[in-house]
Write a protein that binds this DNA or RNA. Structure first.
Length: 457
RNA sequence: GUGGUUGUAGCUCAGUCGGUUAGAGCGCUGGUUUGUGGUGCCGGAGGUCGCGGGUUCGAGCCCCGUCUUCCACCCCA
């Protein structure tokens, strides 16, 4: 007996209707990316393991899909090592390649490898799948699509301003009004850590702070204590927990809090610059919000960080994110190359648009007219006209088998083909075609030329 | 990686306290004047109840394991 087919955990099939909707989102993204001057690139689905490992932190390494070597891969593993059950060491012996985890690190690798062909600053966009060995849950898959735009080779804060406008433009085009673009700066977080005297605990500190709106101030403090951060230092954080008001008001409060920290003030100055530019340029539908607790997981960010959350009432986490990384290419041996980039989560945006019923009424990409097949002679007559119709840009097809009428009509009906064209003995003799309007059931016999004109309207 | 949850026909789901031959709707298929679909009527096919073990006279139902689904945590798009 044939086994029931299935697909791996966390993966999905996309049927025509879903593909149409995914394509709708992608078309808007591509259009905006190109208007902003980004050029497309693609990179391989898998990379050499050393390119990816160690770039996303310990947790990230765990979530990278490793590809088992081919051939006698066990030759490199002796019994002693095998019985040690040391996964990471054994993995490095039997797996040399891994599926990409995001598009940013492969992009950094690309830039370093192609530096001689590139005129900097280099702006590229990339829409490809990435893979993570995560446990699936709402809005979380093991295979999903990221749509990234990055620019490398420019320190200018105008890039940050442009990216925020890009968020605003894209979400406005998608009719997804009321998104919140949260912005923060790693330098501010570093400044706070400095002020607390907890520079060495920066990562633990930001991860805990990131949870503030989710678990509350008390639990954040508890987590920081657990991570070994000094209680007195945590007390100094109180003003951060109580931060409120408008963007400008928060800036003012942070300024006095970080008055001693050079790096902290630098971060604040950057945010002020960006905010001022955007006040002049104006946002269309998105809101810009300063969120000091925003940390973001990827530890290569060094300056501004962004995250976009869906309009209120949609519980799906972030739908886009990004930030500046001053030294991403440094790990591949190319110094002083600053980059900024953002990533749109196609799959999550899809879920949000679906939940809010924001997909446009699908313009069916299917055929406009189906030729009914009555038999060999009739089919030959139809074929001739079918190809003429196609040359005129009309999407049309001939039912391949001379089967039952009912089956052919049902086919047209199920596929929402608006017109059916019939040509039997009588029509062939008269050199005509019969057009049936599926919705009304009306039909009329007319010359092929007239029929063509009818479709042209 | 941790905790919970789910799995019965192609799909959505019923199935009582463990009790004879596991059901419905939709879909599929055949027929209902053989050149006419979408709404009618009549018929038909289709299930190792996720998989493997166990308890029992007897398991879709109880127990254990495993895979899968969805959700939360960790983390993240």
């Amino acid at each position: 007996m044939a086994q029931k087919p299935s697909i791996p955990k966390g993966t999905r099939d996309f049927s025509p209707n879903e593909m149409e909707r995914r394509q709708y989102i992608i078309d808007i993204l591509k259009h905006r990316f190109q208007l902003y001057g980004f050029m497309p690139i693609e990179t391989p689905s898998f990379e050499n393991s050393e390119t990816l490992l160690g770039k996303y932190g310990e947790e990230g390494d765990r979530l990278i899909f490793k590809i088992l070597n081919n051939g006698a891969f066990l030759d490199k593993v002796d019994d002693e090592l095998l019985s040690s059950k040391n996964e990471s060491v054994i993995t490095s012996k039997i797996s040399d390649r891994a599926l990409r985890y995001d598009l940013t690190v492969p992009f950094a690798r690309y830039v370093v490898q192609h530096q001689n062909e590139i005129a900097f600053p280099f702006k590229r966009y990339q829409i490809q799948n990435v893979w993570r060995a995560d446990r699936p849950q709402k809005g979380r898959f093991r295979e999903f699509t990221q749509c990234d735009a990055d620019v490398v080779g420019s320190d200018s804060l105008l890039q940050e301003v442009e990216f925020i406008k890009l968020f605003d433009d894209v979400f406005t085009d998608l009719k997804l009004n009321g998104c919140t673009i949260k912005i923060n700066n790693r330098k501010i977080l570093a400044g706070i850590a400095e002020m607390m005297g907890a520079e060495d605990k920066l990562i633990d500190f930001t991860v805990a702070l990131d949870k503030l709106d989710k678990i509350g101030a008390e639990q954040v403090k508890t987590e920081m204590l657990d991570k070994g951060i000094d209680p007195q230092a945590i007390e100094k954080l109180q003003p951060v927990f109580e931060l409120s008001g408008s963007f400008e008001e928060k800036i003012t409060q942070m300024k006095s809090l970080l008055s001693e920290s050079t790096i902290g003030l630098e971060g604040i100055a950057e945010l002020e610059f960006i905010k001022n530019k955007l006040t002049t340029l104006k946002m269309k539908t998105a809101h810009l919000d300063l969120d000091i607790t925003l940390a973001r997981g990827l530890n290569y960010y060094t300056g501004c960080i962004f995250e976009v959350s869906a309009p209120q009432g949609v519980n799906i986490g972030s739908i886009s994110g990004g930030g500046r990384y001053d030294d991403l290419t440094g790990i591949f041996g190319m110094k002083d190359m600053s980059g900024v980039g953002i990533s749109f989560g196609l799959d999550r945006i899809y879920l949000v648009l679906e939940e809010l019923h924001l997909f446009p009424e699908t313009v069916k990409a299917g055929v406009q007219a189906l030729f009914i097949n009555f038999g060999e002679a009739e089919a030959n007559y139809c074929m001739e006209w079918m190809f003429r119709f196609r040359e005129s840009g009309i999407k049309t097809e001939l039912f391949p088998d001379a089967g039952k009428m009912k089956k052919q009509m049902t086919y047209a009906d199920k596929n929402e083909i608006p017109f059916v064209i019939l040509a039997g003995e009588d029509e062939i003799k008269a050199g005509k075609l019969t057009l049936k309007h599926m919705k009304t059931g009306e039909q009329e016999t007319l010359s092929p030329e007239d029929l063509l004109k009818r479709f042209a309207e």
